[in-house]
Nucleic acid binder design. Sequence first.
DNA 1: GTTCCCATGGCAATCGTTTACATGGGAGAG
DNA 2: CTCTCCCATGTAAACGATTGCCATGGGAAC
Lengths: 355, 355
Amino acid sequence: MVPKQPGSPPAEGKAPYSLRHVAQLAGVSVATASRVMSGSSHPVSERTRELVLAAADSLSFVPNRLARALVTARSHTVGVIVHDISDPYFGDIVKGLEDRIHAEDYQLFVANSDRDPEKELNYVRAFDAHQVDAIVFAASSLTDPDYANTLRKLAASFRARGGVIVLLSDHLLEGPRVLFDNRRAAADMVGYLANRGHRRIGYIGGPPDIEVSHVRLAGFNDAVAKFGLSAGPEYTANGRFTAKGGGDAMAELLERVDVTAVLAANDLMAIGATRRLLSAGIAVPDDISVAGLDNIAIAEYGPVPLTTMQIPTYELGQQGGALLLAAVGGGDPADARLTGSIIERESVAGIGTSA
Amino acid sequence: MVPKQPGSPPAEGKAPYSLRHVAQLAGVSVATASRVMSGSSHPVSERTRELVLAAADSLSFVPNRLARALVTARSHTVGVIVHDISDPYFGDIVKGLEDRIHAEDYQLFVANSDRDPEKELNYVRAFDAHQVDAIVFAASSLTDPDYANTLRKLAASFRARGGVIVLLSDHLLEGPRVLFDNRRAAADMVGYLANRGHRRIGYIGGPPDIEVSHVRLAGFNDAVAKFGLSAGPEYTANGRFTAKGGGDAMAELLERVDVTAVLAANDLMAIGATRRLLSAGIAVPDDISVAGLDNIAIAEYGPVPLTTMQIPTYELGQQGGALLLAAVGGGDPADARLTGSIIERESVAGIGTSA
DNA sequence: GTTCCCATGGCAATCGTTTACATGGGAGAG
DNA sequence: CTCTCCCATGTAAACGATTGCCATGGGAAC
C-alpha cells in the first residue's frame, strides 16, 4: 500500500477528500475537524467551527459513514426483509418504514425473500455482516423447522452485537412488534353491515390452510355472536384467494342460504363474488351487499366500487420504524396494534333505513 | 477508549468476534485468517485453511463488511432512488434490480424521493456518505434548475470516488442506461390493431406537458404513417391521466370521428374510455376495440379485461443491475433498450377476419 | 553438504473516523 | 501577582479488516 501524501490531490477510487484534508485546509487537527463535522458535544470555539465548516464546504467534503460506523458501532442502517417488494402490500410497508427512519438519518436496505427460507437466512447474515442497527421482518416467519433453529441462532448473535429486531407480523422470534388485528378487522366490517340493518350475512373465506383465513373467520364469528345475527355453518363457504374462488364460493352460498350481505375474506374474492351476483341478475348492492377486506388498488375499479377495509400498511411500516428507533436508542418500546378503517364505496346498501 | 484484551469475551454492543479471535483460536496470524476468510489469492496451505475455517465456524464468525469496505474502497452496496416504492411500477424495478445484484452479493439501499428535488439530492449525498458503489436512478430527473446543477456536481464528485451511476429512464445525467422504448410501444400497439384490420384508429393522449404523452403520441403517428391509416388531428383527443380523463376524451373523439379502435396513452384512461363506451351503449370490443398501455394490475379487472402492453419493469431493474455490475467491475457497458410485450385480453376484436 | 528458491506465514501500515486523555493558555479569584 | 480552573485544541489509540513486503524454512538441484 503506497503511503499517501497528506494534502495530495485525491486519487481515483478513493474518497475524494477526508477529514485530514479538511483539517489541513482549516489549519486545525483532525480531531477538531471531526468534532465540528460530527456535531460532537466537545466544545469548539465559534471561530474554529466556522473555519472548519468553510474548509469542508469548499472541498465538498462528504464524511465517510462507514468509518464512523466502525468506531461508533452504529451504522445508521436498517435492513427490512419482505416476501416480495413488487407487492404493494409490502411496498407500502417499506415506504412507511423508510419515511420514518429517514427522518432520523437512517438508510434502508431492502431484501426479497421470495418466501425461500434459505434466502431469508442469507439476508439476515448479510445484514449482520453489513452491521445494520436493526432488522425488520415485514412478513410472518416461514414454517421450515431447520430455518427456525438457524434463524434463532442468527438472531441471538445479532442481538449480542446490539442489534434490534422488529416484527411486523406473527413471527417465531421475539421482539417489539406491530401487528394488524385481522380478527378485529373482520369483526368490525360485520359490525358495519349489522349497523346498516343486515341480519343474514354470509362469509366467503379463503383456503383453510392459510392462517389469515382462520383469523378473519374468527372475527366474523365474533361479530355474528355479538350482534346476534343468523348463524350456522351454512353461512360460510370457502374458496381460493382469487376472483374465481370468490365467485364459486358465492354461487355455493346462494344455493344454501338467503343472505342480504356477504363479507369476503379479501377484495379479490369480493370482486369475484360481485361478478357472479351481477351475472346471475342479482343487483349489488340493491339485492345483496358485498364487502371486502384489504382495499387493494383494484377495489375501486371493479364491477361495483367495493366497500372494504383499508389495512394500514403504511402505518405498519411507520410504527415499525418508530419502535426500531426507540429500541436502538436503548428503550424497550411496547408492542403496537393497528386496526383498519372502512372505505365506503358503493357495494353496500342499508336495509330498512334511508342509508 | 479502554484497550481490549485480545481473547476476552465479546462485549455488548461490539462485534461478537473479530478476525483476531478467529486467528487466535486457529493459532495463526490475523493476516492469514483474513486471507482464508476473504478468499485472497495469496497462497495458504490446505491444513491452515481448514484450521481457520473450523475456528471461524465454531465462533460463528461474521466478517465486518464495513471494515473491509474501508480498506478495499468497495462497499458492495448499491442505492436506488425511486419516486414511490409503494407504486408497483417501481416495486417491480427494484425487485429486478435487487435480484440481479444480490446474486453478486451486493446489498440494496432504497430511497423514496416523493418527486421532491431536495429530498432526492439528500439521498444522493447520503448514499455517497455510505460509500455505495453505485446509484441507480429509476425515474426521470426532475425539472427544477437548481436541482439539476447540484445534482451534476454531486454526481461528478461521486464518480471521482469511483462511483457508478445508472439511469433507468430519461435523465439529465450521463451514464449507462436502460430505457423502455415508449415510442415503439405505442407504435407496436397500433401495429397490432392495424394487423387485425383496423384502419380508423383514435388516440387518447395524456396531458401535453408530460414527456411520456408526447413520446407515445409520436409512436402512434409513426404507426399511422407506416400502415397508411386514416390520419388527422381529429383522431386524437387529450385528457388527464385518469379514468375520468380517458372517458371525457373518448366522448370528445366520438363526436368527431368514426373509429373502429382506440389506443389510450395508459390503462387508466383506457378503462375510463371503455366505461364511457359501454354506458353509451357501444359494445367493447364488438363495436369499438380499446387498447391500453402499461398493463397495470387493474387492467385485468376493469369493465372489459383490457388488451394492453406490458412494460418490462422487472427486466428494466434486472438489466440495470447487470449494467451496474459491469461498470463497477471496470467495464463500459452499452446502453440497453427494452420493448414491451402485448397482453391479449378481451377488449380488442378483429375486423373482417375471424380473429 | 551447500546453495538457492519458492511456498507459506507474519509484521505492520493503512482505510477515515471518533474519542479518551494530555496540554496549554487565559480569565477570574484571592 | 499568583494560583486555580476550565475551555479549546492536539496527540494518539482504537474500530476490524486487507495487503505490501519481508522472514522463514524445507526441499530440490548441484
